[in-house]
């Protein structure tokens, strides 16, 4: 016998996840347009690997396989990993990353809804620490044919070929130049001398980021996500990079470069919005997202890694229970009262 409410809104985890995947499509389209179809191969690889890993571990954990396999959460994780990794990494790296995300970061913590860390970012962080070399090659827009890309993914081309067809990401290139050339270099000179720079950020990158932005706005309209997380993340990143470039324009890139030059848009709408591992209270979401932006900007500006989003997300994931506890919203009729923890 079930109890009230007997009326249920037609909503499901599956429909949420599928709409998230749909929202990724504009970004993916731009990706393919500028960097070639390799990303589609990676997405396919990641999808298969995610479903296989999910099915295997569900079976081992004696959980209903079909119910959870069709919820779409593994697919979202898989796609986000594929979109975060460089598109020309060897196939086994993608598969390994997805397997780690699903098996270790998700299921060893208890499966859907239980993982304290964002699975995609756990996998990304592990890969960038374990295989920094492989993770630094991004395709030059329009440089490689699909066949060459295919060979890179499955047959690991010789380094010389690789160098001809790939380059560092715009963020990475800028950071490396500023670090190695010391005080002589400035943001303007580095960017001017780099052929991969587009209108205001990386060539192609700005369009892909624009695609993610479009998808993200659609998710907002669909009420899949709330404005708090993306707004706080983008605003903080904008403010920090803006302030830094105003103060020292020679050594700090401006806000547009930060927002559109790396994974910021993907993170803002798709990665940090993973509800399971993010803060949940309205105020907490603002703190959580701002914290990620801060860590990201620090790592980008002063760290040794090309991008800092993954570490930012993971570090803030740890703080989520604390943030949530201290930001419980006031309850009806208790608006002036103290929060539970006191």
């Amino acid at each position: 016998m079930t109890n009230s409410p007997y009326l249920l809104k037609p909503a499901s985890v599956q429909s949420i996840m599928l709409r998230v995947l749909a929202a990724l499509l504009p970004g993916i389209a731009a990706y393919v347009w500028f960097f070639g179809a390799a990303i589609l191969v990676q997405i396919a690889l990641a999808t298969v690997a995610a479903l296989a890993a999910e099915a295997l571990i569900l079976k081992l954990r004696d959980k209903p396989v079909m119910l959870f396999l069709t919820d779409g959460s593994a697919l979202v994780t898989a796609w986000l990993i594929a979109l975060s990794l460089p598109p020309l990494v060897p196939w086994w790296l993608t598969v390994l990353a997805v397997a780690i995300a699903i098996i270790v970061a998700k299921h060893l913590y208890g499966g859907l809804g239980q993982n304290p860390f964002n699975p995609a970012m756990v996998a990304f962080a592990l890969m960038i620490v374990a295989y920094p070399q492989l993770m630094s090659h991004w395709p030059l827009p329009g440089a490689a044919t699909f066949t060459q890309q295919w060979q890179m993914i499955f047959h690991a081309l010789a380094p010389e070929t690789l160098d001809a067809l790939t380059s560092a990401t715009p963020l990475d290139a800028l950071r490396t130049a500023l670090h190695t050339q010391g005080t002589t270099a400035s943001v303007a000179s580095v960017l001017a001398g780099n052929g991969n720079i587009g209108q205001f950020a990386g060539r192609g990158w700005e369009w892909v980021a624009g695609g993610y932005l479009l998808g993200g706005l659609w998710m907002l309209q669909q009420r899949i996500i709330t404005w708090h997380l993306p707004a706080a993340f983008l605003a903080t990143l904008f403010a920090l990079s803006g302030a830094a470039s105003l103060a020292d324009g020679a050594h700090h890139a401006g806000p547009l470069f930060h927002l559109f030059g790396g994974g910021a848009m993907l993170a803002a709408f798709f990665i940090i919005t993973d509800p399971v591992s993010a803060a949940t209270t309205p105020k907490g979401k603002l703190i959580f997202a701002a914290g990620i932006a801060l860590i990201t900007w620090i790592i980008r500006s002063f760290g040794a890694y090309p991008d800092g989003i993954a570490f930012g997300v993971l570090l803030m994931n740890i703080a989520v229970p604390l943030i949530d506890m201290y930001t419980q919203p006031a309850v009806f009729g208790h608006k002036k009262e103290d929060m539970p923890h006191e």
Binding site: S73, T226, P275, T281
Partner: peptide, 19 residues
Amino acid sequence: EMPCIRCGECAKACPADLQ
């Protein structure tokens, strides 16, 4: 029933402003 994914839909719908 699926596990809670902390999506926050319930908090948005709660007329008593609970979590």
